[in-house]
């Protein structure tokens, strides 16, 4: 008889509502903190995952996209891919590619796996893409003693030091596969800018 009365009086007190309201507000803050910290705090990182294809600063052909052995998530099985991981503090990187395929493209990703630049073969000059990925300081140094063909390159100035380049080439049918693979194998991801 006494307890329910006390319980009712206890629950009716504004303390419960005020603490509950505070809980909702602090819960909203925790929600925002969790969402914002996920991209940097995930234990598995796309940049580390890409490292297992081979050493940095050269293109590695990815295995064909087949069920259960997909090299990366959400790749197109109708395409063949080559990947090149780089860290710009070891010097700028020059990506050169020429693939004979109805469609091929190059995309640059940052450390979190977001595209920072992408282009396809329609923008290529004479069928070849030559792309210089460089930081602002490195570009200032390079401009003092510019290589002869600096003007012909697509210069991508970026603050993202870590990243990777992904080259995609469309294979319309199995008959195209040898020439597409040949183009992907000849693709260059190099730091030797002056010796072109």
């Amino acid at each position: 008889m006494r307890f329910p009365h006390r319980l009712r009086r206890e629950l009716m007190s504004p303390r419960w509502y005020l603490w509950g309201l505070a809980g909702l507000l602090v819960g909203g803050i925790i929600h925002i903190l969790i969402v914002l910290s996920v991209p940097t705090q995930v234990p598995f990182n796309i940049f580390d995952k890409v490292a297992r294809f081979g050493p940095d600063r050269q293109f590695h052909m990815l295995p064909p996209v087949l069920p259960r052995t997909e090299p990366l998530v959400d790749l197109d099985p109708a395409m063949r891919h080559a990947i090149c991981r780089y860290q710009l503090d070891e010097g700028p990187i020059l990506v050169r590619a020429e693939v004979s395929s109805p469609f091929w493209s190059v995309a640059l990703f940052n450390r979190e796996g977001q595209t920072i630049y992408s282009l396809n073969d329609r923008t290529a000059d004479k069928g070849e893409i030559s792309m210089l990925v460089i930081t602002q300081q490195q570009l200032a140094i390079l401009r003092e003693n510019p290589p002869a063909d600096l003007e012909e390159m697509i210069i991508i100035e970026t603050e993202e030091v870590d990243g990777f380049a992904l080259l995609r080439a469309f294979v319309p049918s199995a008959a195209y596969e040898p020439q597409v693979l040949d183009g992907l194998e000849r693709a260059e991801c190099t730091s030797r800018i002056n010796q072109i």
């Binding site: 598995f44 796309i46 995952k49 990366l72 998530v73 959400d74 790749l75 493209s105 995309a107 990703f109 796996g113 977001q114 595209t115 630049y117 992408s118 282009l119 396809n120 923008t123 992904l166 995609r168």
Partner: peptide, 10 residues
Amino acid sequence: LRIPLGSGEG
């Protein structure tokens, strides 16, 4: 760890 398509690609 999805690989997105860049806007210049499609």
